[in-house]
Structures are given as structure tokens and as C-alpha cells.
Measured scan of single mutants.
Amino acid sequence: EQLARLKREFNENRYLTERRRQQLSSELGLNEAQIKIWFQNERA
């Protein structure tokens, strides 16, 4: 579920704002660094 949600977010926007990253962190139970790194890896 977390992965599917991250992929949906990535398809909508390849870059997250700090606020959006905080929201996802709270909703998915991941820390902000994990989300940031995931997005960086997807863009690579």
C-alpha cells in the first residue's frame, strides 16, 4: 500500500514540497528522509 501510494504521488508530481512530504510521512508511517530518498531514486 505504501509503495502504491508513493507511485501515485510520483505520477502526479515528480517533486514534493516540504509540506507534502510531511503529510505523506504522517499518512504512511514513514519518516521524511525515507520519502525524500524514494523520490530521488525514482527520478534517477
Rank of each mutant, 00 (worst) to 15 (best):
E1R: 06
E1D: 12
Q2Y: 07
L3T: 07
L3R: 04
L3D: 04
L3Y: 09
L3W: 07
A4W: 03
A4I: 08
A4K: 08
A4G: 04
A4Y: 03
R5D: 00
L6A: 02
L6W: 00
L6V: 01
L6G: 01
L6C: 05
L6H: 00
L6D: 00
K7R: 13
K7G: 04
K7M: 10
K7D: 02
K7E: 05
R8L: 10
R8C: 10
R8H: 11
R8D: 06
R8F: 09
F10Y: 08
F10M: 02
F10A: 03
F10Q: 02
F10D: 02
N11F: 11
N11P: 00
N11I: 11
E12V: 09
E12R: 13
E12P: 00
E12D: 09
N13Y: 07
N13M: 04
N13H: 11
N13G: 06
R14H: 09
R14G: 08
R14E: 07
Y15I: 12
Y15C: 14
Y15F: 13
Y15Q: 07
L16W: 05
L16H: 02
T17A: 05
T17H: 05
E18T: 14
E18F: 09
E18K: 15
E18V: 15
E18I: 13
E18H: 14
R19K: 14
R19S: 14
R19P: 07
R19Y: 10
R19N: 11
R19D: 13
R20P: 01
R20T: 06
R20K: 11
R20H: 06
Q22V: 12
Q22D: 03
Q23W: 12
Q23F: 10
Q23P: 00
L24Q: 00
L24G: 00
L24D: 03
S25H: 02
S25G: 06
S25F: 05
S25T: 04
E27V: 06
E27W: 06
L28Y: 02
L28A: 02
G29E: 04
G29Y: 02
G29A: 04
L30A: 00
L30V: 06
L30R: 00
L30M: 14
N31C: 09
N31E: 13
E32Y: 05
E32K: 05
E32A: 08
E32G: 05
E32L: 08
A33I: 12
A33N: 13
A33Y: 13
A33P: 02
Q34F: 15
Q34D: 14
Q34R: 04
Q34A: 13
K36I: 15
K36H: 14
I37G: 05
I37C: 14
I37Y: 09
W38H: 02
W38C: 02
W38A: 03
W38I: 04
W38E: 00
W38N: 00
F39A: 00
F39L: 03
F39H: 01
F39G: 00
F39Q: 01
Q40A: 12
Q40S: 08
N41P: 01
E42P: 01
E42W: 14
R43W: 14
A44L: 13
A44G: 05
A44K: 11
